[in-house]
């Protein structure tokens, strides 16, 4: 009983299971209204959280970059085959044949680099503004998860051109995974779909890069933004009292 209380009483528990199972109408409404998946619009938005200067900074820039990445990425998928050696040939096709192909590729590439940088700056800003403190500690954790996903997207995308740089970067990266105690080799096997960086690794990275991670990131961004509206953004915590 004591242990149960310790768990249910902890902050982590309370930030995830916020309402309990109390069968009152109020509780039911709260449960719905305070859940991003059940109620996309925040039930209450503070006026200042909607102000231009409070909203459109690093977080928004990374969101725009993400939108650019999704847009260019979908177009790039039209030209790309995740197979050996066609993947590299497709890079050449983009360069030499596809109209504005290099522009597309470069947009995608630079937006990806930009997103990593901007997301990092976003994190720094939140950190130095102590915006990870309550009531935004849950959003801080969501943000960290989003940063990880951004990095993973960047890394999985790196393999797709299937050039020497890609091959060796992923060889090195997945060898680093091997250093994980006990499970290292298995995780590496799971990632690569084999023991070497080959066609199945390419396919796995492709699916991760184009389907699983972007979907997860989209959902994560939804939660993140919803919490921003609900809890207030970084700017809202710059040491000033709430108005």
């Amino acid at each position: 009983m004591k242990l149960e209380k310790m768990i249910t009483g902890s902050r982590v528990w309370r930030s995830i299971v916020r309402h309990g199972v109390e069968p009152t109408n109020r509780n039911r409404v709260l449960t719905v209204v305070q859940n991003v998946f059940l109620h996309l619009h925040s039930a209450k938005v503070r006026r200042r959280n909607l102000e231009f200067s409070s909203t459109y900074y690093l977080g928004a820039v990374s969101l725009i970059l993400f939108a650019i990445l999704v847009g260019t990425g979908i177009v790039l998928m039209i030209y790309y085959h995740p197979s050996v050696p066609q993947a590299y040939n497709d890079m050449k096709e983009l360069k030499f044949v596809v109209g504005s192909g290099m522009f597309l590729r470069n947009m995608h590439r630079w937006a990806a680099h930009g997103m990593v940088i901007v997301v990092f700056l976003h994190l720094l800003r939140v950190f130095y503004h102590r915006a990870y403190k309550p009531p935004r500690e849950f959003n801080w954790v969501v943000g960290i998860v989003l940063l990880l996903m951004t990095l993973l997207l960047s890394y999985t995308g790196y393999l797709l051109p299937w050039d020497q740089l890609a091959f060796w970067a992923v060889s090195v990266g997945t060898n680093m995974v091997k250093a994980v105690p006990v499970l290292g080799d298995r995780i590496r096997y799971l990632l690569l779909g084999g023991n070497v960086v080959g066609e199945s690794a390419l396919l796995r990275f492709y699916v991760l890069h184009c389907v699983i991670l972007p979907l997860a990131l989209t959902i994560g961004v939804g939660v993140h933004l919803w919490r921003v509206r609900k809890d207030g953004s970084v700017a809202g915590s710059s040491g000033r009292k709430r108005g």
């Binding site: 040939n89 050449k92 096709e93 360069k95 030499f96 044949v97």
Partner: peptide, 10 residues
């Protein structure tokens, strides 16, 4: 040389 290319250098 590089057959896929459409510029001289490449």
């Amino acid at each position: 040389g590089q057959g896929r290319a459409t510029t001289m250098m490449d």
